[in-house]
Design a binder for these strands. Sequence first.
DNA 1: CATGAATGAGCGTTCATTCAT
DNA 2: CATGAATGAACGCTCATTCAT
Lengths: 209, 209, 209, 209
Amino acid sequence: MVLTEKHRHILLKAEELFAVRGFDGATVRDIADAAGVNLAMISYYFGSKEKLMEALFRERMTLMRIRLETLIMDDNYTPIQKVDILIDEYVNKVIQQQSFYKIMLCEQVINNNPLVLKMLRELKLSYANLVGVLIEAGQKQKIFKKDIDVMFLLNTMTGTVTQMVINKEYYKEYNNYKKLNAADFNELLRTKLSAHVKLVFKAILGYEQ
Amino acid sequence: MVLTEKHRHILLKAEELFAVRGFDGATVRDIADAAGVNLAMISYYFGSKEKLMEALFRERMTLMRIRLETLIMDDNYTPIQKVDILIDEYVNKVIQQQSFYKIMLCEQVINNNPLVLKMLRELKLSYANLVGVLIEAGQKQKIFKKDIDVMFLLNTMTGTVTQMVINKEYYKEYNNYKKLNAADFNELLRTKLSAHVKLVFKAILGYEQ
Amino acid sequence: MVLTEKHRHILLKAEELFAVRGFDGATVRDIADAAGVNLAMISYYFGSKEKLMEALFRERMTLMRIRLETLIMDDNYTPIQKVDILIDEYVNKVIQQQSFYKIMLCEQVINNNPLVLKMLRELKLSYANLVGVLIEAGQKQKIFKKDIDVMFLLNTMTGTVTQMVINKEYYKEYNNYKKLNAADFNELLRTKLSAHVKLVFKAILGYEQ
Amino acid sequence: MVLTEKHRHILLKAEELFAVRGFDGATVRDIADAAGVNLAMISYYFGSKEKLMEALFRERMTLMRIRLETLIMDDNYTPIQKVDILIDEYVNKVIQQQSFYKIMLCEQVINNNPLVLKMLRELKLSYANLVGVLIEAGQKQKIFKKDIDVMFLLNTMTGTVTQMVINKEYYKEYNNYKKLNAADFNELLRTKLSAHVKLVFKAILGYEQ
DNA sequence: CATGAATGAGCGTTCATTCAT
DNA sequence: CATGAATGAACGCTCATTCAT
């Protein structure tokens, strides 16, 4: 399926609504209105509401695994450097694509779309496998501790970052960051999250700078 | 509002369905069928589907803050002990009430119920405040590092635990725990999560055992 | 499925509309309006538009085969008398239930409902078998000719009667029966059809009065 | 309106689909796909779906009346011969154009197209009138009985033939003609139908060979 | 002439809720 | 208290048709 600019525009608006109202809560009429297109266009372009969701996942998830694979196989970085890059890139992605990561979170819980479930499963497992390779490389070089649980490691990162993004308004309120504009606040969140997760990873992986 | 046994039974079944299908995905008919009560009873008992959700949140969240307050104010424990208890109790609660924590997660993202939003907000902020008190106490005793970001700390715990619970089937598959029954696997998850979060907290708070 | 008076009322109105506009042409909204019930009642009572049609067929076809079976097995009549009764009863039924016989006719052609198709098939074949028994009895008594093709015989009756009913307005116009009211015209049609088909059957079966 | 080869090709495919799914059940998209033409061409060529149906009726019905008129007025045949030719030609036409005769049957019942209704009415009445002339000629020659009801006569033919064509699969099954290919079975049907209707007509018209 | 894109209207169905009993 | 029946609103989707190119 080749996506035109209009396809992508609809996907973007759908993404925003799915993130705010959930899949069932966002109606096709809502999406069509938000995208400024006719109601029938959604079915015309994507086939159905379900397939729209699938197209969104396909579009957003395509590059994820490839990027990770490239990073893990890259010989120019040490395992520690790779871990840092991994964290930076993940935090950046979540900050930039907050809507999609919110949808992903809910789809992992609710899940009523088999194809989305399949894509999520493949992503999760291939992520664990690839990071597993990285961990083992570090362990062979005696940089990382033995007995690292890859899934605990990854879920600590994804969980922490997602929670911060979900609760960012409370964070803003709690720390009185109300004067910051959205972009600055995101940048602050990005920096802090990156540093925080790196600190945590050092403890888990057992290395010092 | 006084809840009878029947109220609680309906809430339990509603909780299970909301966790699996989401608020919009679980129909009142589904819930009535699952609870073995007449469809009209839901409205009769709770007023509406929305108020049913609110009652569920009220019921499940009532004891949370009180328990934390008691713990923080308890003079029989050191700050480090309190942190350990906090983690243990949180992990236990999430493992035991997986359905409700899944619902909470989605409601934080989706949110279309102002009252639920309000309850979540109050819980989040009072949690941060109470744990803030605990952190400051530890800092005064020079046990914890300066510059602890309470929200980062808490979200690391909640994020990690929730992610592990959400993805527990992948964890089972990845580690070949298929032979374990549900109870044993939950127990294993509980133990591992508790230890893991404690390790991470030490790194963030900056103390050694 | 137990049919109440309201069920039957809806079926009656649906029957009229299906006969005039066809299954696809008659909308659920039309039927609900005609029956004076809420739109959602159709699904509530019958499950779906398709199942409404199936219920109509089940309701109308239930007694057909039983009546024929009773007649064929009845020892009080000669084969010739049975043929006459068969014709009289068929003509009466079609005249009385013109709408349903129109629907039946179209469903035999169009057919997009497997269950209706199945019911029609069973009716057709069991009719052929039962009348086959009657013919053989008459042949053994040397009353009927050898080599009677039961399906040709039956389709001559059903075809002739249905055509006359379908085209009854042209018949009225062609014969200047416009002064007759609907009931009288139906009665005239009934009498003429009965006599006509009996004449034709004599020729096919090869007997004289 | 002048019909090109492409017009005729579309009409042919539309005819097949209308016969199988009915006018409402066959979508313009289906027809366009079946004909291998662009969807918009249907409207472009015929104006609308309704007008496509009208064009189909106009195309198929054009020659019918003319042929009958010629036959009736032909002085080379006796009334009996004319009746036989009439039957043969009608049976042949229905067997050859089964799809169109199925559509005609449904349109007589359902009727939502005034123009089609008008064409059907004219055909019916002019047929009755023309055959009426033939009958009167035979009556004057004392070949046919008095008091022949032309419409009964004609509807016996059309009804019998149409019913046999509609139910031909049951006929095949009932008589175990499954080994016959479609062409052979049609030929068998044609022969039998022709003989059968001639037999019936003799009885109605009251003559012997 | 021919076409891919687009649209308003309307489809069958399901929903949370209400009400008479 | 409890319930089967009933309902208005809205759902996702498909339809015949149109239009810019």
